[in-house]
């Protein structure tokens, strides 16, 4: 009994890691732009497609496909960032919703047009199971967990010490003051956006071997899972996002085991409603940041 619960918690933490890497990008973009990026899941999808393409069509190894997947997403994110995201600085909130939803549709349907709407089979990765703590787990899941920890340590350091991290925090606090002291706000926005999209792509490529199927609509579900996480974590809060993602991952896993698989997606949406009702500023801050 205890080992089952432990196993489910580990499962949940692995799922949470995937969510965390995607969500942290979304929350940082919110920080600098004050806009929810509804297209965020699409970068997760693009990364996965890039990797799948480089394995299936170019015959590259899985390691190389991670690089291709992330780099191709960075290129697309640069174009979107230049054309759309930079213009959202100072724009009303509804234009951000409209613009990012539009981008989501364009990206998703372009992929469906080019590669077809069917499921693709992601055949590579480290899927051999290894046994730890008395249950077995694919090596890939351990990799996801390790990468997630590295990403968050790296982000903490970046946000605290680097110039880019400091300017990101500055932009999220006061855009006008940034302009006064000479911080290039559009550039900070662009860089944050590209970083967030690249992280989403990385999460997609790392998850593809265990999720097996790759298809145009796969980003949508991730976007909707990410929403409750970034609200739970407190919009714009990097550390909070990490813990919120873990909480959601573990809760989903326990619900799937003890209540029923069909109720898994309910957890995220129920959390979203409860958070918006009682703690719209997140679990980890005492008052709203924005």
């Amino acid at each position: 009994m205890f080992s089952t619960i432990l196993e489910q918690i580990v499962n949940g933490i692995v799922t949470g890691s995937v969510y965390a890497i995607v969500a942290v990008g979304m929350t940082m973009i919110f920080g600098v732009l004050r806009a929810i990026n509804f297209a965020h899941g699409e970068y997760y999808m693009l990364g996965t497609f890039g990797a799948w393409f480089s394995i299936d069509y170019l015959g590259l190894s899985y390691e190389a496909s991670i690089v291709v997947g992330v780099l191709s997403t960075i290129v697309i994110a640069y174009v979107v960032g230049k054309l759309v995201m930079q213009r959202m600085v100072g724009a009303p909130a509804e234009s951000g919703v409209l613009a990012t939803l539009g981008i989501a549709l364009v990206l998703q349907n372009t992929v469906i047009l080019v590669f077809g709407g069917g499921y693709k089979f992601f055949a590579d990765g480290y899927i051999e199971p290894v046994s730890i703590l008395g249950f077995s787990l694919a090596q890939q899941r351990i990799l996801i967990l390790v990468v997630c920890l590295l990403v968050f340590v790296g982000l903490e350091l970046m946000v605290t010490y680097s110039r880019m991290g400091k300017s990101m925090r500055a932009v999220s606090q006061n855009v006008d003051c940034c302009e006064v002291v000479g911080i290039d706000v559009p550039q900070v926005v662009l860089r944050t956006f590209i970083l967030g999209a690249a992280l989403a792509a990385l999460s997609g490529v790392l998850t593809a071997p265990v999720n097996v199927s790759v298809y145009g609509g796969m980003g949508e579900l991730i976007t909707f899972k990410t929403l409750p996480i970034i609200i739970m974590g407190g919009l714009g809060n990097v550390r909070g996002t990490f813990f919120a993602a873990m909480i959601l991952g573990v809760a989903e896993s326990l619900v799937a085991t003890y209540v029923g698989l069909q109720f898994r997606d309910t957890v995220g949406f129920a959390t979203l409603i409860l958070m918006l009702m009682w703690r719209p500023h997140g679990l980890f801050s005492t008052q709203a940041r924005f």
Binding site: F135, A256, G260, L261, R264
Partner: peptide, 21 residues
């Protein structure tokens, strides 16, 4: 045991562990 999955579900580890046990 009885479980139903939603279209697009990708994580069956919880249910499969339950079935194993």
């Amino acid at each position: 045991s009885e479980d139903y999955y939603k279209e697009g579900e990708v994580d069956f580890r919880s249910v499969l562990a339950k079935i194993r046990d």
